[in-house]
Design a binder for these strands. Structure first.
Lengths: 158, 158
DNA sequence: CGGTATTATCTCGCCCAACGAGATACTTGT
DNA sequence: ACAAGTATCTCGTTGGGCGAGATAATACCG
């Protein structure tokens, strides 16, 4: 009576992976005297840097679901630890852009590097059709999870 | 110059999925006046129930990385909200097993059901070889992430 | 059977991440 | 120049989680 659908095994596996990745990040946080939110912030900052965009304090807080007070405290914390720098925007001097320090990047790489390397190694073992399946499944799940956040009640017109 | 390895795209995609699934859970928590830890606890309890094992307060706290004080507070919170019941173990009367209320299961299903359904639907579109690739990749990543937690410093003897 | 160690949970007091409200500083529109 | 809008910060408070230790039940050992 428990699992009539064999697909549920993979659903549970994906959930287990998400949990394990969260635990992996939490370990990085604890080992470096940080909080989970701090790690999420650093990742968001590095993602923005990779995309070539500047990250302001406000956008960072928004991405993490923090209000302005929490965001200030977060950036204070990261700055005190030397992981980021506050830089006043020259054009709009109300804005504070948050820049990641190089040492934080190195520190992060030393923790996440091995895991990323293993994942890349695994992916090299698959052919194009298998990679397309992995990519398609992950993309679909990401969209399904994100869709719920947008308009959970009413449909949008075409 | 940014991504010489094409595999990195899938690595970032997997990370994005993990983030999105976390946000999905956080939304469930917020909509029902709960905290992320409470949701993690309910999931752990349902997993144990699915596996046919009883979950004690201590094991629950251990699974979530809480100490005993935090665990007591967590179960208090969940019990006050009517999501779980405390049941004294008959054999070892020090133990308190935590049972999930049916309504909490229904509530959870109403939130996570559509996402799970969509994932199952996606998986039905793949053949055995593609499913094996998805399963293999996810299993490998889970193991790589978990390995770091076990013995990061010294090797164990044979 | 009594006594001590061990295990499971709970209580108490504290810390600090995050919140709400509002102050401050800068920019934009009229 | 002045009002309205926007970005960040300050202040006071809440509440999840921690450390230390109390309480209660079980296991070990002579």
């Amino acid at each position: 009576m428990s699992d009539p659908e064999p697909e549920m095994e993979l659903v549970h596996l994906l959930r287990a992976v998400a949990v394990e990745l969260g635990a992996h990040s939490a370990r990085f946080a604890q080992r470096n005297g940080m909080h989970p939110t701090d790690v999420r912030a650093l990742i968001a900052l590095m993602d923005a840097a990779r995309a070539g965009e500047a990250m302001t304090a406000g956008r960072l807080g928004g991405a993490l679901g923090l209000n302005s007070a929490g965001t200030t405290a977060l950036v204070d914390r990261l700055e005190r630890a030397g992981h980021v720098r506050r830089v006043r925007d020259g054009r709009d001097r109300r804005r504070v852009t948050v820049e990641v320090d190089e040492r934080a990047v190195t520190l992060g790489w030393s923790h996440f590097g091995p895991l990323i390397g293993r994942a890349v190694e695994l992916l090299r073992g698959y052919d194009e059709r298998e990679l397309a399946a992995i990519r398609g499944f992950l993309t679909g799940v990401r969209e399904a999870a994100a869709d719920d956040g947008r308009e959970p009640h009413h449909n949008e017109p075409g």
